[in-house]
């Protein structure tokens, strides 16, 4: 199997590229190769699911794609920026500008209401408070939670919390949306709801990458990347 079977979509803009990337935790005898020589290209319009058994390196790869981590070897490019060369602050700015995150555990800030959580993504960006609020509100409405703007996370169901997290990830209009087990903590109905929103986000400018254990979700994607022991074992286009 080859890591570049999706080469037929090469006419679309490359948003992100991992090139011969390895990530090693620890050193010497205790070293764990969480990723070993992985190369991957994410293009605008991609809707990718990443699957694989536990410990195969999915989350590690997602952390690298999200510029939350730096590889031990290899290079990562986001847009035309080689982030592996950037200092922490510059890398953080690339993250804020280009990438949106959704986590299994939602990770909402408990003392802020829904709109406050969404606004957090727009802080320190020289926006007027009113504009920030309007954009946050629009984002909440997009996930169907306009009416719950002043509810704090404890007042929201798991599904609603994940939708707030989605609104927060979307409010910056990121080119790449990364989700690690976004439905992992949700029941079937809420999971379906979140997946519906995620698939609705597919656009020709954006890429959505979802790590999942759920085969239905994995197979509903446009492209499926399978991992094993820190490597990519298949990368297939399921539909166009």
């Amino acid at each position: 199997m080859n890591a570049s079977t999706s080469a037929d979509s090469s006419n679309l803009t490359i948003l992100m590229e991992l090139s011969h990337v390895s990530r090693v935790y620890g050193s010497g005898e205790a070293a764990v190769w969480a990723l070993r020589d992985v190369s991957l290209v994410i293009r605008a319009g991609d809707f990718v699911s990443i699957v694989g058994p536990s410990g195969s390196g999915k989350s590690t790869m997602l952390g690298l794609l999200g510029c939350l981590d730096v590889p031990t070897e290899g290079t990562i490019t986001v847009g035309d920026e080689e982030v592996t060369r950037l200092a922490d602050a510059a890398r953080t700015r690339v993250r804020g500008k280009s990438i949106g995150f959704v986590f299994q555990q939602f990770h909402l800030i408990p003392h802020l209401d829904a709109i406050g959580n969404v606004e957090t993504a727009l802080l320190y960006r020289s926006l007027k408070p009113a504009e920030r609020r309007d954009r946050a509100m629009a984002s909440l409405e997009r996930v169907g939670l306009g009416r719950r703007a002043d509810h704090r996370p404890v007042q929201l169901s798991g599904g609603e919390q994940q939708r707030v997290a989605l609104a927060r990830a979307l409010v910056t209009e990121p080119k790449i949306l990364l989700a690690d087990e976004p439905t992992g903590a949700l029941d079937t109905k809420n999971a379906a709801n979140v997946m519906e929103i995620l698939s609705g986000l597919r656009s020709s400018e954006r890429a959505v990458v979802i790590v999942t254990h759920d085969l239905d979700i994995a197979n509903s994607a446009v492209r499926k990347v399978s991992m094993l022991d820190g490597g990519i074992v298949s990368d297939e286009v399921l539909r166009s």
Binding site: G66, L68, D88, A89, T92, R93, R95, G96, K97, F101, H107, L108, I109, P110, T120, A121, L123, Y124, R168, T172
Partner: peptide, 12 residues
């Protein structure tokens, strides 16, 4: 909270 803020692009 600090982790999510860092993920959202807030620098150190």
């Amino acid at each position: 909270e600090i982790g999510i803020r860092r993920a959202l692009g807030h620098t150190r």
